[in-house]
C-alpha cells in the first residue's frame, strides 16, 4: 500500500490484523448507483426477466446521487423498468443487506406476487479523508443487485433487525445535511489528532467503539435468530458477515463456536465495501457453490447507526453470476 500517512508497522497492522491488502476505488464520476446499475443490468439479463415485470426497486446506500430526488427513481428510469414500480431509497450502511432483504421480501409478501430488485452499494471513498489514517485505507467502493421473486412454496426468511442510536457518533459524517448544512468552511480540514486530518464532510470512524459494539451485539442476534427459526448452527452452511475487520469477525466466530471454513472472507481482496460487503462476499466466494442445490445461510451486517441485522435465508440453485469488475 503506497500511503504516506502510515508507518510501515501501521501498514502491517492493517494487512495482518485487520486483514485488508487491496481495495477497489471507483474513479471520479462513477457513483454507487452506477455500480448498482451495471450489476442490475447483468442480473436482469442473466435471469431473462422482462423489465415490465419488476414492480419493486429499493436502493440502499449512504452515498446517493443527489440529496433529492431519491436515487431509486433515477435508477427506475435508467434501467427502463415499468412505471408500475414502487421505488425508494433507504439510508443504511453496514447493516444494509439484511435490512434490504427484509424490506423487499416483506413487500413481496404483502403483494402476494411480483418481482423486486434490491440494489445495495456505496462509494465510501468519497466520504473518507485521504489524510485520516484511521479510515483512509479501510474502505472500498462496490455496488450490488439482488433479484427476489415471490414464491408461496419458498421457505421462510428470518430476520433480527436492531438499532442503537446512542452510538450514532461512532460512525458519522457530520456536515452537509440538515443539522450542519454546507457552508463556506465545510471543506476546511483540521488535524483532530496526529494523522487524523479531515473536514466536517468526511467520515468519522471510532474503531474501538465499533469493535465493542460488534462483538457485544452480533453474537446474541445470531443466537436469537437461530432459536426463533429452530435451526442449529451446525445446520447452517455459511455465515456471511459484514467485512469490516478480521479481528471483529474472528471474535464473533469464536464467541459462537463457528468453524472458520463456514465464514468466507473478502477483506483481503476487497477491503470494507460498506453496505455491499455481504453481496460482494456472496458473489466473490460463493457464487458457484450457491448455484448448485440448496443452502442455508446466515447473513449479519453491523455498523453505522448503530444498526445491526441478521437474516437466515435458504437459497436454491441461484444464478451463477460472478463478480463484475468495471
Amino acid at each position: 500500500m503506497d500511503y504516506p500517512y502510515l508507518s510501515d508497522k501501521e501498514k502491517q497492522f492493517i494487512s495482518k490484523s485487520i486483514g485488508i491488502n487491496k481495495r477497489r476505488i471507483a474513479p471520479d464520476g462513477i457513483t454507487a448507483s452506477d455500480l448498482c446499475f451495471e450489476a442490475a443490468q447483468k442480473l436482469v439479463s442473466e435471469l431473462a426477466w422482462s423489465k415490465d415485470e419488476i414492480n419493486i426497486l429499493v436502493f440502499v446506500s449512504q452515498t446517493p446521487d443527489y440529496i433529492t430526488p431519491n436515487t431509486a427513481s433515477v435508477l427506475q428510469h435508467r434501467l427502463g423498468i415499468s412505471q408500475q414500480c414502487l421505488a425508494f431509497d433507504v439510508n443504511l450502511g453496514c447493516s444494509a443487506y439484511p435490512y434490504g432483504l427484509s424490506i423487499v421480501a416483506g413487500l413481496l409478501q404483502n403483494m402476494k406476487g411480483g418481482k423486486g430488485l434490491l440494489l445495495v452499494g456505496d462509494k465510501s471513498s468519497q466520504l473518507v479523508s485521504e489524510e485520516d489514517k484511521s479510515a483512509a485505507l479501510l474502505f472500498s467502493d462496490a455496488g450490488s443487485a439482488t433479484a427476489l421473486e415471490y414464491d408461496d412454496q419458498a421457505p421462510n426468511m428470518w430476520f433480527d433487525l436492531c438499532t442503537d442510536g446512542s452510538g450514532a457518533e461512532s460512525l458519522m459524517v457530520k456536515g452537509g445535511a440538515g443539522r450542519h448544512p454546507f457552508h463556506s468552511a465545510s471543506l476546511d480540514k483540521t488535524e483532530e489528532s496526529p494523522g487524523i486530518i479531515r473536514s466536517e464532510l468526511n467520515l468519522i470512524l471510532k474503531g474501538l467503539d465499533i469493535f465493542k459494539f460488534s462483538v457485544l451485539k452480533v453474537p446474541p442476534s445470531i443466537r436469537n435468530i437461530l432459536e426463533a427459526a429452530s435451526v442449529s448452527k451446525e445446520n447452517v452452511d455459511y455465515f456471511v458477515f459484514h467485512q469490516a475487520n478480521q479481528l471483529i469477525n474472528k471474535t464473533i466466530s469464536k464467541k459462537l463456536g463457528i468453524d472458520s471454513d463456514k465464514v468466507p472472507q473478502t477483506l483481503g481482496s476487497f477491503g470494507n465495501s460498506s453496505s455491499a460487503s455481504i453481496p460482494v462476499t456472496l458473489s466473490s466466494e460463493l457464487h458457484t457453490t450457491l448455484s448448485r442445490g440448496k443452502h442455508r445461510l446466515i447473513l449479519a451486517g453491523f455498523g453505522v447507526g448503530l444498526s445491526w441485522g441478521t437474516a437466515i435465508i435458504e437459497t436454491d440453485s441461484l444464478a451463477d453470476i460472478p463478480l463484475i469488475e468495471l
Binding site: E10, S17, S134, G207, L208, V215, L247, T251, K254
Partner: peptide, 14 residues
C-alpha cells in the same frame, strides 16, 4: 497507539 489498543482489547475479550 490506537492500533495496539485494538489488539489489547481483542486479547482481553478473547
Amino acid at each position: 497507539s490506537s492500533m495496539l489498543a485494538l489488539i489489547v482489547i481483542v486479547q482481553i475479550t478473547d
